[in-house]
């Protein structure tokens, strides 16, 4: 099982790098889909089938389709570097560096991992997740739904507006 984990971890990292380095938007979008799908496999290896399948349905199957749709609709071709502002040049690298250090420290604290097996007290089945969502976390869940609804309405109003 841990061999599979390392294979898909490698695929995830390589695809993520490819996504950032590609100059053609469609290739970037496709690399992101590969990242999302191989992350779903990692969830599967941890025994969270429900999360894995939802990851593919929602992110790879719905949100990324919209991305690809927009790229196709705009017929976006090769990316050309824009005239970067000074601010980006001087602030960009330090901020990225700070994030990198922070991530490395977080990983270092967890290293070496105490166990590769999923925690026994966590249940990834649809029923267990449903109980958690609708019993323990029902208020945050409903508030999130209302937020999403408001966002959808806002998008419709903005799209309808004639300029």
């Amino acid at each position: 099982m841990s061999i599979l984990f390392y294979i898909f971890a490698g695929v995830t990292v390589l695809a993520a790098l490819n996504m950032v380095l590609q100059r053609t938007p469609v290739y970037s979008a496709l690399s992101l889909i590969v990242v999302l799908c191989s992350l779903a496999v990692e969830y599967l290896l941890l025994g969270a089938e429900f999360m894995a399948v939802l990851q593919v349905i929602i992110y790879a199957g719905a949100i990324m389709v919209l991305f690809v749709f927009v790229i196709m609709l705009l017929n976006a071709g090769h990316e050309v570097p824009s005239h970067r502002s000074r601010l980006v040049k001087w602030l960009g690298a330090p901020i990225v560096g700070a994030f990198l250090v922070e991530m490395l420290m977080a990983i270092w604290e967890q290293f070496p991992p105490t166990s590769a097996a999923p925690p026994a007290h966590l249940d990834g089945s649809p029923a267990a997740i449903g109980h958690l969502l609708f019993k323990n976390y029902v208020l945050p869940f409903e508030v999130t739904s209302i937020l999403i609804l408001v966002a959808v309405l806002g998008a419709v109003v903005l799209a309808k507006k004639e300029f």
Binding site: V26, L30, I33, E49, F50, V53, L54, V56, I57, A60, G61, A62, V65, V68, F69, M72, S125, P126
Partner: peptide, 25 residues
């Protein structure tokens, strides 16, 4: 026999749209 078998089918079907969209593009 997957215990989320139905969702698995939906996940795979939802990826199928890429084939057609990318072929067209």
């Amino acid at each position: 026999d997957l215990n989320v078998g139905l969702l698995f089918v939906f996940a795979v079907t939802s990826l199928g749209v890429y084939s057609i969209a990318l072929a067209g593009w």
